[in-house]
Design a binder for these strands. Structure first.
Length: 552
RNA sequence: GCGCCCGUAGCUCAGGGGACAGAGCGAGUGCCUUCUAAGCACUUGGUCGCAGGUUCAAAUCCUGCCGGGCGCACCA
């Protein structure tokens, strides 16, 4: 267990024992031992006295005093490196630990070999995270890019926290949209051969189909069925999407295809099962799902009057198929414009008797690009649509990932392109990366000066007591807990916030504490601290998928 | 009308039961003959949308309202 978690556990135990001794007839309420925001409030703070006040029938501060009186003295404190305890504020018990209590962090980072953030809270549970899943009808856009950054970082965080997480992309390569894509491509081929461009109703006017039309025309007969046009277009567009994603550092483990779900006859099976379970009814020549019985606002059509499935049938079938693969949790990252579909899919799954409570749907809110203080209006019709590739050309992978991951997924965000592309101090990406580059430079120069990074065991217990050193170690100690929280809350942006704090602590240390030229024990201890900070930074940036440059 | 998300500093956003609410940008002032100034230190700036409720304790949880975004097809 990580040092911070260990100490917190020991503090809990000591406080609980002290409280039991002071108030033998009182059942202990739930309480927390947390890290106070304010340094003056000690290393750890506990709310036990305030929580106990009513049952102990004494004012909180008196309860706190009584507990503190029962805490083990320094001699007996082998379990907890307690310096002193103090009653403060409305009745907090603040614990001040003996200097050096954080030193074990350095050893932990060293022996973890890049897996310092790892914890076991996930318990090996299997999670499938589906994200992006853009329609294969055109290039990826900026919102897809945000989803990619989020989903990929979430998978990384989950895996670090002890889950077994995998990524998946669902390809809608069937149905009406698919057919219209084929018709759009065919229209482009006709245009290429001198005809008039006649796009179908709801077709795809994007120019990206032109090179595809050229390619198609050279290898296929013009009278090929629409299916063939569509399959060709999807195959090429998907390839381009994969390239964009790869460039962004996102590689999916699984691609699931709607066409495959249909080939297997899953939609038919779903409809039959829902019908057999009595969750359907017929009206106006269509077959409906009684989804209101499962909390949906309206009942929904499953099979249209013309005998075709609505899109939600393969959707339900796909989710049922995912459950069938044995995952403990399914996570869908959806664009918020699709949130209306969630209830009916859930209803269908519930109707099939599947454990819908294990399906988590996270909604990816919109992104607005801001350039020169003005929002960049993006419209597919107006031709001002910005693709993921164009966006990455301008912003770069590191800045794009970092910026997207600074915000929670469930808030719309303004992406300030000017700030993200500025190569200067005010850009948070560089701030963090610069900390890493600085450490690397320091380590290089130390090596040239003949200074070797010592083993953690060689560092004296009273070393590294400068406030900036302690603050840096504390930040390092917090990583495993931060990653656990990010994984559990499905909130990788917490790691980004953490990265900024860690970088800040290092910059502070760097400015206040010199390494090269200091007395040997100090220089050695600081060198180890810097090296450990470097390792933690690398790991943190790795969770975000952002690079850690050695020089800037 | 119904549903989901969001209202925190001039702007963009963290903080999601604890003690005087934070960062970046913006505005202003210092610090490079010593390990990267893409840095550090300081100043400026907030009835945490409003009103109730729960709690020893609410920006944080609950309810209602107000404001903004997005959905509400036998399109996907």
């Amino acid at each position: 267990m990580a040092i911070l978690a260990q100490i917190q556990q020991k503090a809990r135990d000591s406080l609980a024992a002290a409280a039991a001794a002071a108030f033998p007839n009182v059942t202990l309420p739930a309480f927390v031992v947390q890290r106070p925001r304010e340094g003056a409030h000690g290393d750890l703070a506990c709310n036990l006295a305030m929580a106990m006040a009513s049952v102990a029938r004494r004012p909180p501060r008196q309860v706190a005093e009584a507990i503190v009186a029962q805490l083990p003295g320094p001699a007996a404190a082998a379990a907890l490196p307690l310096g002193r305890a103090e009653v403060a504020g409305p009745g907090f018990i603040n614990l001040f630990l003996r200097p050096g209590w954080l030193l074990p962090v350095l050893g932990e980072v060293r022996t973890a070999h890049g897996a310092y953030a790892r914890s076991a809270v996930g318990g090996g549970r299997r999670v499938l995270v589906e994200f992006v899943s853009a329609n294969p009808t055109g290039p990826l856009n900026v919102v897809n890019c945000r989803a990619a950054a989020f989903g990929d970082a979430l998978v990384r965080c989950l895996n670090a926290a002890g889950w077994r997480a995998e990524s998946e992309y669902y390809v809608n390569d069937a149905g009406g949209q698919f057919r219209r894509l084929g018709e759009s491509l065919r229209a482009r081929v006709v245009e290429l051969q001198g005809g008039e461009l006649e796009l179908p109703e709801g077709g795809y006017p994007g120019e990206y189909l032109i090179p595809l039309a050229e390619e198609f025309a050279t290898a296929h007969p013009t009278d090929a069925p629409v299916e063939e046009y569509a399959r060709f277009a999807v195959q090429r567009i998907l390839l381009q999407q994969k390239e964009s994603l790869a460039r962004f550092g996102v590689v999916f483990q699984h691609y699931a295809h709607e066409s495959r779900i249909r080939e297997l006859g899953e939609p038919q099976r779903v409809v039959a099962a829902l019908r057999a379970a009595g969750h359907t009814f017929e009206r106006d020549g269509a077959l409906w799902l009684r989804s209101t019985a499962f909390g949906d606002n309206d009942d929904r059509v499953l099979v249209k009057r013309d005998g075709e499935f609505t899109y939600r049938v393969p959707d339900i079938a796909y989710h049922a198929e995912k459950f069938g693969r044995g995952y403990d949790v399914l996570i869908d990252v959806l664009g918020q414009d699709h949130h209306g579909d969630v209830a009916s899919v859930r209803a269908g799954l519930e109707g099939l008797g599947l454990p819908v409570d294990r399906l988590e749907v996270l909604l990816n809110q919109l992104v607005r690009l801001v350039r020169g203080g003005e929002t960049v209006r993006m419209s597919k019709r107006g031709g001002t649509f910005i693709s993921m590739d164009e966006f990455l050309d301008e912003v770069g992978t590191d800045a794009a990932r970092f910026f997207f991951l600074m915000r929670t997924i469930d808030t719309h965000m303004d992406f300030d392109i000017d700030l993200a592309t500025r190569q200067a101090s005010e850009n948070p990406v560089y701030y963090v990366q610069y900390a890493h580059a600085r450490i690397c430079s320091l380590l290089r120069q130390a090596a040239e000066a003949g200074l070797a990074v010592p083993a953690p065991s060689e560092v004296a217990g009273d070393a590294l007591q400068h406030p900036a050193e302690a603050a840096l170690m504390l930040a390092m100690a917090e990583l495993p807990e931060e990653v656990r929280a990010a994984a559990e809350a499905r909130a990788p942006h917490r790691v980004t916030t953490y990265a900024r704090v860690l970088a800040e602590r290092f910059h502070n240390f760097y400015v206040q504490c010199r390494v090269i030229g200091e007395a040997a024990p100090t220089a050695a201890a600081r060198l180890l601290l810097a090296e450990a900070a470097r390792a933690v930074l690398v790991e943190t940036l790795g969770l975000l998928g952002v690079s850690a440059p050695e020089r800037m």
